[in-house]
């Protein structure tokens, strides 16, 4: 393999990986706080793409406002979802909550299929396509936007979690829900905010990917959802920096497999990584191992 092909796939991998990181952040924050794998997270990412699509086409907005609007709407969906489907099950067995999450995912998919149509829609070209050549390696302006916006959002999230009141409350709840409650933290509100933040990030990812691939469909969230989850597990579920690192690693790994010439195995990579991490290091790269008490 020529070195520049490798380099090219690394660049593609970083761009795609930034999206996986955005999705992984939502999974990891929700899991960190209520120990639920929010299966519907990938579908919120899909909804974000559709919200963006309608804001750009029907609403006539430019990319920036469309992005913000879509993130806001997705945050609302996330909060409502938690409120209706997950909150009543908070003290139920985790499996019950997981089945509910699967149900929520199917629900969003099937309703979207009816509402938006089952076939794919071409995503509007909000920004004219440009390709920048550096030697024999290419970077597109979309990749730069994808990467830039993602990094910006991640830094923003980091600042929120580290330095704001609500961020501190989130960290407290993820460490010990009961203790946080006793300290006067409104746990319900913290969980709502967590869903809102995670959903907003996923929606941004959805729009960016819609632009990148030029197309969106009601099932576009399924595979990225699983890959984002894998990224979260890889980095150590519940650990925010872990989700970012895991996302980039997933993106790069996937594109390296494509570079090796087997694009049909592209999706299998995610599952292989997922299984290997679960079996060999279930706490992930940055996570701490927890023991079960007998």
């Amino acid at each position: 393999m020529e070195w520049y092909i490798l380099l090219q796939q690394m660049i593609n991998g970083l761009a795609l990986g930034s999206i996986y990181s955005l999705i992984a952040l939502g999974y990891t924050m929700v899991y960190g706080i209520i120990k639920l794998i929010n299966f519907a997270h990938g579908d919120i990412y899909m909804l974000g793409a559709y919200f963006g699509f309608y804001a750009l086409t029907k609403g006539g907005l430019s990319l920036g406002p469309a992005l913000l609007l879509s993130m806001g709407l997705a945050a609302l969906v996330g909060v409502v979802l938690e409120r209706i489907a997950y909150r009543p099950l908070r003290s139920s067995p985790r499996i019950t909550a997981l089945i509910t999450a699967i149900g929520a995912s199917l629900f969003i998919q099937s309703v979207s299929q009816i509402g938006f149509g089952a076939s794919f829609k071409p995503f509007p070209q909000a920004i004219p396509f440009q390709r920048i050549a550096i030697g024999s390696v290419f970077i597109t302006n979309r990749q730069l936007i994808m990467f830039g916006v993602s990094i910006f959002l991640m830094v923003t999230l980091h600042l929120i979690v580290q330095y704001t009141r609500i961020g501190k409350a989130m960290r407290a709840v993820s460490m010990d829900k009961e203790a946080a409650m006793l300290m006067g933290i409104n746990v319900d509100r913290v969980i709502s905010v967590t869903f809102a933040l995670g959903s907003a990030l996923a929606a941004a990812g959805g729009i960016l990917v819609g632009m990148y691939y030029n197309r969106i469909d009601p099932y576009m969230g399924v595979m990225p959802g699983i890959k984002g989850f894998t990224a979260a597990v890889l980095g150590g579920i519940g650990v925010i920096p872990g989700a970012v690192i895991g996302g980039f690693m997933m993106g790069i790994a996937e594109n390296l497999v494509v570079a090796l010439g087997s694009s049909t195995f592209r999706d299998a990579v995610a599952f292989a990584i997922l299984i290997l991490v679960l079996l060999l290091k279930p706490a992930g790269l940055l996570g701490k191992r927890q023991r079960e008490k007998v």
């Binding site: 489907a85 099950l89 067995p93 509910t100 149900g103 629900f107 099937s110 309703v111 299929q113 009816i114």
Partner: peptide
């Protein structure tokens, strides 16, 4: 096309009220 909508709603309601 409503099949999956019905299934998913059933599934969620089931988990909420009769797990």
């Amino acid at each position: 096309e409503y099949r999956m909508v019905i299934y998913s709603v059933l599934l969620i309601l089931m988990m909420l009220f009769r797990p």
